[in-house]
Design a binder for these strands. Sequence first.
DNA 1: CGTTGAGTTGACCATCGTCAACAGGAGTGG
DNA 2: CCACTCCTGTTGACGATGGTCAACTCAACG
Lengths: 242, 242
Amino acid sequence: MADTLTKPNCRPLEPGSVCVHCGLRPLSVCAALDIGELQQLEMVAHVHCLTAKATLFSQDEPAQFVYNVTAGTVRLYKLLPDGRRQIVGFALPGDFLGLALADRYGFSADAIEPVTACRFSREAFTGLVDRKPHLLRRLHEFATHELSLAHDQMVILGRRNAAERVGSFLIGLRDRWARLHGHSSVHVPLPMSRQDIADFLGLTIETVSRTLNRLAREKTIVIVPDGVRILNVARIEALSEV
Amino acid sequence: MADTLTKPNCRPLEPGSVCVHCGLRPLSVCAALDIGELQQLEMVAHVHCLTAKATLFSQDEPAQFVYNVTAGTVRLYKLLPDGRRQIVGFALPGDFLGLALADRYGFSADAIEPVTACRFSREAFTGLVDRKPHLLRRLHEFATHELSLAHDQMVILGRRNAAERVGSFLIGLRDRWARLHGHSSVHVPLPMSRQDIADFLGLTIETVSRTLNRLAREKTIVIVPDGVRILNVARIEALSEV
DNA sequence: CGTTGAGTTGACCATCGTCAACAGGAGTGG
DNA sequence: CCACTCCTGTTGACGATGGTCAACTCAACG
């Protein structure tokens, strides 16, 4: 799968054919729709481009829109009153934001790097969902998949030590990139900061840094400018073992 | 709401009227169905009674059935190869098991106390779901609600200390019992063991015991035979503050 | 060339885990 | 009826993992 799929692209495109030609379609919720339905969807869609650090939406705010991420990485997080942050997930291209179709957002979302996303008014989208059971079925599949990932993350947060958390994180991201690119690679891009990784894994930035560099010192990984390269796949997979 | 709703009851009932008279219906997925549909559901239902410690299903095993818990408490958990356990949730009356409608179970489930559950063959149930978009919509609501609870639990596991975890747990259970009984109470039944609480909160049994007894010593709660009674609601709510 | 922000590293420390002993109730068998 | 075991929960002593605080490097940027 070409890299253009996951790189931002905000050039205007000829109306009525954007969704049909979208390379991410088979991986996104849109796969549930036929060509006619795609055109209905496109009529209520708006291609939205965000710069790094831009906010898509904030927790508890009225949920005016739902989103389909088409390029870049989004961090999803909850804040405690005293400022502690827990990242509940990273949304990659193909991921849908607003699965709950609820009145208010359950978490905050902002762009880690330049992001493009198809934005739909929640009202229009839920209208479409109500008329298209196949789309609802697809949303439900996405929701239960997210639930399963959340359960895995609960195991990581509740029962694994720092090295295991970092290992599981790398393997988890590797597999998600593999799905997106159509093939697995030992090169794992990490668009998020050490602080983001720490807030996802329930650790501190220092522990993440130490753990990654320990893995590098023992030749399990190499730290490269935009992420890591896995040298000893078996070792990392053992750390992340279910 | 009467307590009979949540107490096991395995007497045979006259066919065709069980679901219609089920007091849990408004709280369960069945609320999406009209009387005719309920009778269709009942035809593929089987009231299942389990003793304490009985297994409903195990992780990775083919998902032959889905369940509606009608009485008792079920623990849902994942195991690591070395035996570490993470409880990903407790299912109370009204909760649905098998939301994913997937080929295999994503976690194991067993009865903490005597449990009754309506059991459906997954095949028959998914057939009904495919014919009834309202039921699918209801399942989706349940799934996104579970996802939201999972996100809350991720915050607890990733970013909260022992006292906050225990406090959040008590408030969370209090609110779930309140929903079930129709009114809130300072009496919070704890049908699960200290070990279960520990494995849910990412702590050890000793830390759970110490934390509960510290709360009792400072007169925030009283430990009673079947759970706790909250004396200082404000204190516990402050601990569990979002 | 100075500033800023991300990341790294070291020294120290607190929280929670580990290990061990013990209490008390339920169930069992003599 | 009592002695015994078993199981759950409690409590104390100690230690390790990961957090805190601080200093430092380095690249990007004005």
